[in-house]
Amino acid sequence: MGAGHGHRLHFHGHSAVHRAPAHLKIPALLAFVLVVVATPREWFAVYAVHLAVLLGVIAVSRVPLRYLAPRMVVEVPFVVFALLMPFVATGPRTEVLGLTVSEPGLLAGWALLAKGTLGVLASLTLAATTEPADVLRGLRRLRLPSLLVEIMGFMVRYLDVVTADLTRMLTAMRSRGVDPRSPRHWPVLARSLGSLFIRSYERGERVHLAMVSRGYTGELPDLADLGRGVPAHHHHAQAAS
């Protein structure tokens, strides 16, 4: 349970993209994706430029595409939607490979696919090159309300602990012949989730008491070392700022 609290997507490296501060990377990601979303769908060449820029950043980061590609599966449900688009959309029909499809639907499907893919790939690049603690520090510098950053910090810190709790419960269920996915066994699953909630809540109470006993007054002095160790001088520099 005391294992690393790094998240699953991070790809360790020392490239310029890895070293760039998170409070620049996050707005850059947001700006890039906003530009992609606002690009008219007929400007095919511009999408090629977007892709080239993104691939350039990935190349500089030295995160292999082989690492990012399998992680793009989160996109799949919307790929299905995009592929369906030419068939359900309205408008004039056209022939593609012997199938009658809607012309604006075809264009819309292409746009969904292109924008969604660029968005996912760009987000994956941020996640792969930025440690969670750096993201938190960046969000704080970007003036995200500190309570929100703190909640996020605690979530990231205990995410692996809570999911590992759940994994052990699911293993215990399966070893007793229960299939958590089957609605027939939902009452068992629900009791496990109920006890997971109680465990998480009580863990939160213990964490809070431990913090109070160390002088917590409702405001964390510094989030820099949440999730990983930070050299002492760095810590003081942050706390002083």
């Binding site: 309570l147 703190e150 909640i151 996020m152 910090g153 605690f154 979530m155 810190r157 205990y158 995410l159 602990v161 809570v162 999911t163 709790d165 759940l166 699911l170 958590p180 996915r181 699953l189 989730l193 997971l196 909630f197 998480s200 809540y201 863990r203 939160g204 109470e205 964490v207 809070h208 913090m211 917590y216 007054t217 409702g218 964390l220």
Partner: peptide
């Protein structure tokens, strides 16, 4: 004043629940 740790843990719980 328990907001940050409690909400963080509950968020982790919701995330875990969404994995199923």
């Amino acid at each position: 004043d328990r907001t940050a740790p409690m909400a963080g843990l509950v968020a982790a719980f919701v995330f875990a629940g969404q994995m199923i």
